[in-house]
Each structure stands twice: as structure tokens, then as C-alpha cells.
Simulated assay, not measured.
Amino acid sequence: MALNLTVKVHPVVLFQIVDAYERRKAESLRVIGTLLGTAEKGIVEVTNCFCVPHKESESQVEADLTYGMDLYDLNHRVNAQENIVGWWATGNEVTTHSSVIHEYYVRECNNPVHLTVDTTLTNTTRMAIKAYVCVPLGVPNGKQGSMFTPVKVQITCYEPEVVGLQLCSKTQLPSHIQASGMKSSGGIEPMMDLAQVSEACSKLSLMLEQVLAYVDDVLAGKQLPDNQVGRALLDMVHSVPKMTSDQFDEMFNSNVKDLLMVVALSQLIKTQLQLNEKLTLLTTL
């Protein structure tokens, strides 16, 4: 396997791993499971996962592989595009039993990925996420072995996941409240579509101001230029279609009208369903 492999992990996978770790049995030191997703052209995209029950001691490890395959078959019926791409385990390192578990996944998919997630947060406030591939070692006609070699890991999101993450970030208490041990007084309700558009525009305006301030500082010699930042800015400018202010206003207003129409239709459908539910309830009385 090429070591320039990139593993892209979606946030829902991390949430499921943390949830499985929180629900583990008291005697379990770590939790393992199967990674689902797609693998193509040096990129493994992990979009889903599930937990596999197992027992682990210093001398042996046992896993309920039948349960794992049954769960995979059920998931495959719902989403046929998600295939087994590897396995995950909680903890910050590869253990002595990892090679035994990895041998099973070698039979289930080609070049499986091993993902470790440190859910203990012992030495840091951020989860350490690492990915490995198993590389065979040895000489011809000699003793063979294997070694887990780290590969690049990226966190990637679909657009709906970004909205969910933004909503989750609003439920986090400030640091001074966390230190005092206080709990949140209530939940966070999702914003309306127009409110999300307004908030996104405010954030975009703030980021543009930061970029302009950086460019002005570089031109004035107050800050050293960064070639990587310059290339990113150039790609960003080229990705924006060239249009006049009138053309942009027309496009923006058209999209806002479409959004308002969708909001109005959704409210009408919601009202109709509520009326239908009440009429059905009245007829049954």
C-alpha cells in the first residue's frame, strides 16, 4: 500500500465512537468497531461506523464477529455505497492485540485502515485521532512480520454536518462556567434558514476583513508573506465567477426568492399536516 494514503473522517464517525465508549461496560478498557465508507485513488473516506462487542485481556482477545457481519449486512441494505474500509479502536496507541484484529479485517477488505481515537483526554483537551496501515516486513523465504505505519488524517464534512457542528458548538459552556461546575440551563434550538444566511454573511464579512488586514500588512512590510497563503488566496479569487455588482445583486435576489418560496411552502405543508392530524383525531372520537 502506498504510504501517501489520506484518511478522511466525518464528524458523525467520531460522535459514534465517543458514544460507544461512554456506553461501554465497566470492565472494558477500550472499544473497537468497524469503519464504513469508500476507498478510491489513495483516499479512504470514512462516513459511518459501528461497535463490535469484544473481550480483551493481556493474553487474548475475543470479538463477536458474527454480530459485526450481521450489522454490516443490515447497514449495506440501507446504504449499498458504504463498504468496510477498516476498523477503529479507542486509545492513543496500537496495542499488542491490534495485529490479531487487523488480520480479520484483511480478509474483509483490501488494505484496511486502523483508526485510533483517544477518548480519555488524559493529557490534552483535544482527542488525538490517528490512522495506520499495516505494512508487511521481512525477507523472501524468511520470517515475516508487519508494522503499523501512520498515514495522514483529515476531518471532512458534508454541508448538513457543518450545520450540525455549528449547532453543537453553541451548546458548549464558556470556560469560566465549566470551571465552576455549572450545567447548561437548556437546549439550543436550530435557527431559521434566513437567520442562518444572516449569520453566515456576518462570519464571511469578518473573515474577509481579516484577509484584507493580512494583505495590507504584507504590502506594508509589517508581516512576512506566506507562499501557501498566497496560493490559497489566488485559488479563492479564481474560483469566484467574474460578474458586475448588478449581476451579483440579481443572482442573490433570485436565490433569496427561491429560499423564501421553499420556506413558505414548508410552512403551508406543516400547517396542512397539523390540520389533517386534528381532523383525523376528531373523526375517531
Rank of each mutant, 00 (worst) to 15 (best):
V100C: 06
S57V: 02
G142D: 03
R77G: 15
I84M: 07
P112T: 02
M127P: 03
V78A: 13
V106G: 13
E103I: 01
P136I: 00
H114T: 04
G142W: 00
A128C: 10
V78T: 12
N75Q: 14
H76A: 14
E56T: 11
I101T: 03
T95D: 15
N123T: 09
M69D: 10
Q81E: 15
N92G: 15
R126V: 12
G86C: 01
V61I: 12
N79W: 04
H114F: 13
A80Y: 11
W88F: 11
Y132N: 04
K143V: 14
L121F: 10
K130H: 09
M127K: 09
T120F: 08
Y72D: 04
A80G: 08
M69A: 11
L115Q: 05
V85D: 08
T119L: 02
G145V: 03
T90G: 03
V139S: 12
A89H: 05
Q60S: 14
D70K: 14
E103H: 09
I129Y: 01
N83R: 15
R126A: 15
V117K: 08
R107T: 07
K55G: 15
Q144S: 10
N75D: 10
W87M: 06
L74N: 13
N83D: 11
Q81T: 12
N83L: 09
R77K: 13
H114P: 02
L137D: 13
V135K: 15
S57T: 15
C109H: 11
H76P: 02
V78C: 07
L115Y: 03
